[in-house]
Amino acid sequence: MTESYFTFEHVSFQYSDGTQALHDLSLTIPMGKKVAILGENGSGKSTFFKLLMGLEKPSSGKIQFLNEPLHYSKKQLIKLREHVGFIFQEADNQLFASTVKHDILYGPINLKWPHEKIEQHVDTAIQLTELEDLTERPIHFLSGGQKKRVTIAGVYAMDPKLYILDEPTSSLDYYFSNQLTAYLDELDTENRTFLYSTHQVNLIYGWADHFIVFHKGQLLYSGQKDALFSNDALLKKAHIEKPWLVKCYESMLREGLIHPQQQLPRSMDELMQLMKCHTFTPL
């Protein structure tokens, strides 16, 4: 199996107005991982995604896709977009068909799949995103959250191996924000990779297994959660909130309610298990 989807080697990007969006970026997007992309607005996350999708070319440096230099010929861009599904932050930038089902059908039809395969993938996508009652609804009659669910269904129906989600919970209510990670868990196999950009750290803390942090166009961190969320100085610099579960763990540790462990708990169940394992001294 290929070890990485993308490799960036000293990549920088400057917009035509002179704005330097990324500075000397070197990193690898590992295959088969759930990657959280963190950073304040303007940190370079959206530009990074545009480079991944071939929508922009680096001003300097090299990008490799599936261990080969990324070229911008029509043939290679088609190959790239067959592998990569992009869910935009603003759903209106991604929807253009007349009805919900027509929009979800658009991508699979353009992949020239057999009719039965198209219908199977589209029906599964509709069920996954709970859009059964909206399939014939005109797009312009949908709420912001409904539109976002249609974009998710449209990308899912194309069966990409790498998902890019740019602030996917914007416009989603509490229920569907939490449902989104459940959707992704259903897709989570060793053959799929996820890049999830968000400010909602609590939502993806226990879900992601790799974290990348951008700050002012530079790579500030790339690695597992433990070294990131135990580094108060780095979190402060990047304006990233510490997850409430980590705050609880650290507070209980200070109070002597649990024993320290090498890895931070990923869920409330894990934290409660630590408490059960702790031997309390009777009063």
Rank of each mutant, 00 (worst) to 15 (best):
L128D: 01
L142F: 12
E167Y: 15
E116R: 09
Q127V: 11
M158L: 04
D123A: 08
M158H: 06
V122A: 07
G154T: 06
L142H: 15
D166G: 09
G145M: 12
S177F: 13
E119Q: 13
A125Y: 05
N178I: 07
H121W: 08
L131K: 15
D133A: 11
E136V: 01
Y156R: 07
L131I: 12
L162R: 11
Q146L: 11
S143Q: 10
T151W: 11
P138W: 10
D159I: 02
V155L: 00
E186F: 00
E132D: 05
N178L: 10
A182V: 12
E167F: 14
K112P: 00
E130A: 12
R149H: 05
L180S: 04
M158G: 01
D133C: 03
Q127H: 13
L180G: 05
I152K: 06
L172S: 13
V122L: 08
A182S: 10
L187H: 03
S143P: 06
S143K: 13
Y156H: 10
E116G: 00
E136Y: 06
I139E: 08
D133T: 14
K147Q: 09
R137T: 08
G154I: 05
F141L: 14
L142A: 12
S177C: 11
R149V: 02
S171T: 14
L162H: 05
I152T: 09
L128V: 03
Y174K: 15
W113M: 10
L187C: 05
K161C: 00
K148R: 12
T169V: 14
E167A: 12
L111G: 02
A182P: 01
Y174G: 04
K148S: 01
S143R: 13
Y174W: 13
D173A: 08
E119W: 10
Y175H: 12
I164A: 03
L142I: 13
T181L: 15
L165N: 06
S170D: 09
V122R: 11
L172P: 13
D159H: 01
H140Q: 11
L134R: 14
S171H: 15
D185L: 05
K117S: 03
I126T: 10
L165Q: 07
Q127S: 13
Q146P: 06
P160V: 02
D173G: 07
E167L: 14
S177H: 14
W113D: 00
L111H: 13
L187A: 07
E119D: 08
D159N: 04
V150W: 12
T169E: 04
L162I: 11
T124W: 12
P160Q: 02
A153C: 03
I152E: 03
N178S: 04
E132Y: 01
W113Q: 09
E132T: 12
G154S: 07
Q127P: 03
